[in-house]
Design a protein around this nucleic acid. Structure first.
Lengths: 143, 143
DNA sequence: TAAGTATTGAAAATTTATCGCAAATAGCCC
DNA sequence: GGGCTATTTGCGATAAATTTTCAATACTTA
């Protein structure tokens, strides 16, 4: 899984696969890196933030970039109960976490568990897959 | 999590919350109960199966029923990599399983892990949530 | 069995995400 | 640094998935 990405590290990783570092990609990654722990953004959320920052990035590019960064393992795609995908930075071990979601009110609680990442790594390894992300999602109803 | 639902058990569970047992809901649950292990259906898939069975259930009702049964904890909603939601029966312990998904080719492998369900139950309990479902999704790239 | 409310079907509307194409630009080589 | 080429962007159009509206129908309960 990923470590912390400086712009140049991002560039290296992109170029290694024939992709390019663009200002749009850099800005989007920066936003996720500066997002407070526990926050996550949908494509629309992100687009609005960018407009607020006077960074004019089209919605298409937002979608394309989110997909790309998730496929690189830099972002993780969350499927919470909101009906659309959310994204957050895919952080390595000590910050790696999972989600407990109330399907009624959509409230989401983060929690950590070292054993889950172990199970995930082991499974991926067993089948020879390259691990990108590993997330436990608990659907439940809050009191 | 759920046990096996007979039509009358389904009726009881529905009525307890002011909902009704309809032939549509009964047929849809039956289809999932007879689905071979490892299969899962999208709303469209299910609708096609129903048409094939000469069960004329509208697509709206299919969507509504899938959502309802998932919220009751009878079905689980899977977010694999296909771009639309899939559903399967939410089975208790010995059949409870998780998914390893290749984000490139969409191939999905099921695997079991008793420890994950334990982690999930513990977390839900800790916050006083009523557990509906608990699934580990591993995103990875196949060889 | 009748009353009252939940549910259904059909079509329209929304929401979410992708695509095609021309213009812009990052990376690379000299 | 300037030019070449392939990648990326923005825009609008489009597609796909899901929800909503509303009148008609059908469960439940008393």
């Amino acid at each position: 899984m990923n470590t912390l990405y400086s712009p140049s590290a991002l560039k290296a990783e992109l170029n290694a696969k024939g992709w390019r570092l663009t200002p749009q990609r850099e800005v989007i990654l920066k936003i996720f890196q500066e997002l407070p722990q526990g926050n996550h953004l949908s494509a629309e959320d992100l687009h609005e933030q960018l407009v607020g920052l006077e960074q004019d990035i089209s919605l298409s590019t937002v979608y394309r970039t989110l997909k790309l960064l998730a496929r690189m393992g830099i972002l993780r795609q969350l499927e919470l109960a909101e009906g659309h995908k959310h994204y957050e930075l895919n952080q390595p071990y000590p910050n790696h976490h999972h989600h407990l979601v109330c399907v009624k009110c959509n409230k989401t609680i983060e929690f950590k568990s070292s054993s889950i990442l172990q199970v995930g790594s082991k499974q991926a390894q067993e089948y020879g897959y390259k691990l990108l992300d590993c997330q436990l999602t608990i659907h439940a109803i809050c009191p």
